[in-house]
């Protein structure tokens, strides 16, 4: 019976990803933050201060700015995507 339900679910394209893969991926992301001890509030502050510094030199698209901690294998990186509108003249 259980096997039949599994089969029907597969046909209906539910449970496409094994739930353990979801667990692993969610853990990976949450641990990046836990380990870096950067709370969402702290990340927000970091973002605001980054904007303050960057706008001294560049005109940036503040709304499009993304700052996140990212993890690849055993390293954590701060990944920032900062759309530049124009460079200020010296």
């Amino acid at each position: 019976m259980g096997a039949l339900i599994d089969f029907v679910n597969k046909l209906l394209n539910k449970d496409d990803v094994p739930s353990k893969d979801l667990a692993k991926e969610r853990l990976r992301l949450v641990l990046v933050h836990d380990r870096a001890t950067l709370s969402p509030e702290l990340l927000m502050t970091l973002k605001e201060e980054l904007i303050n510094v960057l706008t001294k030199y560049l005109e940036i698209d503040v709304a499009g700015l993304e700052v996140n901690l990212d993890r690849a294998d055993d390293t954590v990186a701060l990944v920032a995507n900062i759309p530049v509108k124009s460079v200020r003249r010296a």
Binding site: D6, P18, S19, K20, D21, A23, K24, L27, R28, L31
Partner: peptide, 16 residues
Amino acid sequence: MVKKGDMMDIDDVIEI
């Protein structure tokens, strides 16, 4: 449950 992909296996936990 590990066999069905519904529980993390030993390698998953050790890797994390």
